[in-house]
Simulated assay, not measured.
Amino acid sequence: MSSNSISDNLQTVQDELSAACQAADRPATQVALLAVSKTCSPQQVVEAARAGQRAFGENYVQEAMDKMVAVATLAPELALEWHFIGPIQSNKTRQIAEHFSWVHSVDREKIAVRLSEQRPSNLPPLNICLQINISGEASKSGVAPDEALGLALKIASLPGLRLRGLMAVPEPTDDAVTQRLPFAALRQLQEAMRAEGLPLDTLSMGMSADMRAAIAEGSTIVRIGTAIFGKRDYAKNL
């Protein structure tokens, strides 16, 4: 994929995001675009960044570490914001705590405690989203909705972390009406937590195939990869 097409794709996604916000009667400024750069090369990240994208999401810690170094070498002038959005292994929490600004995929107290203890004191608090298994899929990570409040209250009390909101990856469907149901459930869960005193402001939900439905139900961060960078090559050795 050429650099021009990444720039063109970003513009197309931004236009679609704005149209989805307009359809939902929401300002486009309420929804941030997170470019999911897993399996992408450092050069692709730099091209997207030079086209105006600043926030990038990664799923694999070692790949992300290597990519951050390479991007900083290629374009030291770029100030990028890195989000970790994949499953978290206990032995990877230090790298996540030290190098990311956001983590969208916390679903266990043990992981949150480690991130809290390992967040360097000279950095701002690590922004945390609690991952919810909103569709109840056995194959998916995430805390069950009925256990979310208890975990959220524990996370909110930890130093070095700032609990921002909820994240989910619902069971995929092509039906536009059905797509909205789990997003609505996540929004309602966030509203219930806010009623319990948690100052949550973030709903990380919606990807390339269901962004419009997610925005209609209140998403504040959409995670878009394929529509920006093209079809992924998981066999590629980065």
Rank of each mutant, 00 (worst) to 15 (best):
Q89F: 05
Q89T: 02
R94G: 04
Q95L: 15
Q95A: 15
Q95W: 11
I96C: 01
E98P: 10
W102K: 06
R108H: 14
I111F: 06
V113F: 03
R114M: 14
R114D: 13
S116A: 13
E117Q: 15
E117Y: 11
Q118T: 05
Q118F: 09
R119M: 05
R119E: 02
P120N: 12
S121H: 14
N122G: 11
P125D: 13
L126C: 09
L126M: 09
I128K: 06
Q131D: 07
N133C: 09
G136C: 09
E137G: 12
E137C: 09
S139M: 14
S141G: 07
G142M: 07
A144T: 01
A144L: 12
P145M: 11
E147M: 07
E147N: 14
L149Y: 04
L149C: 07
L153A: 12
K154E: 14
S157F: 02
S157K: 15
L158D: 05
L161N: 05
M167R: 04
V169M: 14
P170D: 07
D174E: 12
D174L: 10
D175C: 03
V177S: 15
R180V: 07
A184S: 14
R187F: 05
Q190F: 03
Q190T: 10
Q190R: 15
A192W: 03
M193A: 00
R194Q: 15
D201P: 02
D201S: 05
T202I: 13
S204V: 04
G206S: 00
M207S: 00
A209C: 06
A209T: 10
D210K: 02
D210P: 08
M211I: 04
